[in-house]
């Protein structure tokens, strides 16, 4: 089967983006107003205190929530149009693997949902890439947390999306596993130059994986820090980590994590 052409990584632009939730008659401002541009092919880390609205921002970009105000364009299209064409993939903190499907079926499900032809070769290739070659027939319940995230990443990549939205994908795994996943997995999409938005709680992760780090204020999410990432520049990482921590600590009152 001919390899389907991967979507070109798009530029993501948010203009006057706002999101307000109505909880039992109470209005809660979750996001914005925000004006933001995510350059094509770059990885941006979004850091901020818990519940600051950065996950909501991600869900808005994915079209999972409708903005209360403002617009988002991905390339030249709306989030809804992009999802319909399977131009993006979303990684969830809990991996969101369906427990009744094997790893292979879970990865293949993305192709089904994207209305793409089944491609056993590509599915197996990705499962091997994330290091689960011997677990293709295993169900999620029998996998470790790290292995589940690997499977979820394989599912994200199988449709070759131009835009990846990662909502704390490694948030639920232990520190050692996290370090290993950080070392192995991001190269899979970063080599292809996928536009990536990564929500994370880990300052170190933000500094080492991204081309750019955005620090958010407590709700409603506003930007309080905008740094160049240190993905290609290990020497700059300690200073960057320091800077992010102080941006977080000074603005949110949260103790910086080293």
């Amino acid at each position: 089967m001919a390899e389907r052409e991967a979507s070109m990584p798009p530029k993501v632009v948010c203009k006057g983006l706002e999101k307000t939730f109505h909880l039992g008659g109470r209005a809660v401002d979750a996001v914005g107003p925000l004006d933001l541009t995510f350059e094509a092919g770059r990885t941006t880390a979004l850091v901020g205190p818990s519940g600051c609205g950065k996950s909501t921002l991600l869900r808005l970009v994915a079209g999972l929530e409708k903005p209360s105000g403002g617009v988002i364009s991905i390339g030249d299209e709306t989030p809804e149009a992009v999802t319909k064409a399977a131009g993006l993939a979303f990684a969830f903190q809990d991996a969101a693997l369906l427990p009744w499907l094997t790893v292979r079926q879970n990865v293949a499900l993305a192709l089904k949902l994207a209305r793409r032809p089944a491609d056993r070769e590509r599915v197996d290739h990705l499962i091997a890439l994330v290091g689960l070659r011997h677990f293709a027939e295993t169900r999620p319940a029998e996998l470790s947390g790290g292995m589940r995230q690997r499977a979820a990443i394989a599912r994200c990549l199988v449709t070759q999306p131009g835009l990846l939205l990662l909502d704390e994908p490694f948030g639920a795994v232990d520190e050692l596993t996290r370090t290993r996943l950080n070392a192995e997995l991001p190269t899979l999409w970063q080599e292809r130059g996928t536009t990536t938005l990564l929500v994370t709680h880990s300052i170190a992760e933000a500094a080492t994986l991204s081309d750019r780090v955005l620090v958010f204020s407590p709700r409603p999410a506003r930007i309080t820090g905008d740094f160049d990432g240190a993905r290609h520049n290990p020497a700059a990482r300690p200073a960057l980590i320091e800077a992010i921590a102080s941006a977080l600590g000074a603005k949110s009152g949260v103790e910086p994590v080293s």
Partner: peptide, 28 residues
Amino acid sequence: PGSWLDLVRSYGRGRLSELIHVRAMASL
């Protein structure tokens, strides 16, 4: 779980796909 339904929606699919791929088996 909400994330299972979000998964379906993140590929632009609607309630019918939710039912076929997720809810039917989840309610089994």
